[in-house]
Design a protein around this nucleic acid. Structure first.
Lengths: 213, 213
DNA sequence: GAAAGAATTAAACGCGTGTTTAAAACGAAC
DNA sequence: GTTCGTTTTAAACACGCGTTTAATTCTTTC
């Protein structure tokens, strides 16, 4: 029972890297097992199916990220919340993912992005069942920080913000190359989150436009 | 030479609908030809390959959208540009896509979204070769409207904004359902663009944050 | 050290994909 | 009405996928 755990970890580490690079559907089990240096059938033996492997990969990150987020949210002041403060709560939990893997934060955001853009319904269900409470807390904090907005407007903008983040991370690689060429910017993907936060905060909290039409 | 054109159009109309619903990779030629009521092999006969069909589908929209955008940009005032004004330039060209198809605007945005999130490198190259000039004009207008921002900050924010738009459109269907359940909102996807513009404008033009670190 | 259980292996299965083929049907021009 | 190029058709091809199988090897336990 030592060789087994070793095999599981080799599979997971190869899978999360390849999933984050190419997406879930575009990554085959043959590719994963080849990179991991294990037999093709061992994925199904240890994780049951490809879906099982995907969930195992996500679980490693969520189980670190979500509790850390909960802790951050509870440390927030009860009054005079700002959107920037709430957004800032997401950063330490993200950074905590380095304990899962050196480049854990980027990996996790990219995995999330693919989970959304590909139709991974089972992931959404699993996440909501397992961590729904934290997510609702987060929403409540945004509401407290944006009492000037109607509930439906805030709803849409939070999803816009989520979309912005995920899309940015997924296309970060390509964009970084362009940016580097155009602006001699040596910016590693690492700091995209810093570029993102002001944009998100301004977008979320923008004044409610007059209802036209 | 009449039956042929008919077949091509049946294929294209079925393809653009299915591509917009499911993405390019997730839509098989067998599904397309079945919906179109034509033979499987006719796609390869008329368009050479699946890639060829994808490009033909996009071309129909780009060839309407891009010239219309160029026209809008040239009608812009030379001084005192605002981000809202530039963003507003995108709306009429989008609406012009109804001449391609009734639900053309939504279809086009969703196709764009999938073209970005799936790795359709050939589409990116083709678009830049064919319409690079208009796109650079658009960037220049945003620069004129945001002289308070550094070039690299604006570059990132414009891509964030593009990402927000595409992601929103791709996930609009799912979000609309949730929104409808939570807020009794009878909002068809049609008006997402109106919800989007204030968010985008505020995000793009947000004050440059002090360079930390 | 032998027996029992867990883990690994190579091979094959069934399925769906994009593409190609070669024959059949069609349409226009003489 | 026949001919010739175009278009349509059904069938097969080659490939990659996730999964399963059955045999083998390794580990542990008595």
């Amino acid at each position: 029972m030592k060789k087994a755990a070793q095999t599981c970890e080799r599979i997971i580490r190869a899978a999360e890297r390849l999933f984050a690079e190419q997406g879930f559907e575009a990554t085959s089990l043959r590719e994963i097992t080849q990179v991991a240096g294990v037999n093709l059938a061992s994925v199904n033996y240890h994780f049951g199916s490809k879906k099982g492997l995907i969930q195992a990969v996500m679980e490693r990150y969520q189980s670190v990220f979500m509790p850390a987020l909960q802790q951050q949210l509870q440390a927030l002041p009860a009054t005079n919340l700002t959107t920037e403060q709430v957004l800032a709560c997401l950063v330490p939990p993200l950074n905590a993912l380095t304990q899962v893997r050196q480049d854990g934060p980027e990996i996790y955001l990219r995995l999330l992005g693919f989970a959304y853009s590909e139709i991974q319904g089972h992931l959404r269900r699993y996440t909501m069942n397992r961590f729904g409470e934290v997510i609702h807390q987060l929403f409540a904090c945004f509401e407290a920080a944006n009492s000037h907005l109607s509930a439906d407007t805030l709803f849409w903008r939070l999803h816009f913000a989520l979309g912005t983040t995920l899309f940015a991370q997924v296309s970060a690689q390509a964009l970084s190359e362009i940016a580097r060429a155009d602006f001699q910017e040596a910016d590693p993907e690492h700091h995209i989150i810093e570029r993102l936060l002001p944009y998100l905060a301004a977008g979320i909290s923008a004044a409610e436009p007059p209802r036209m039409k």
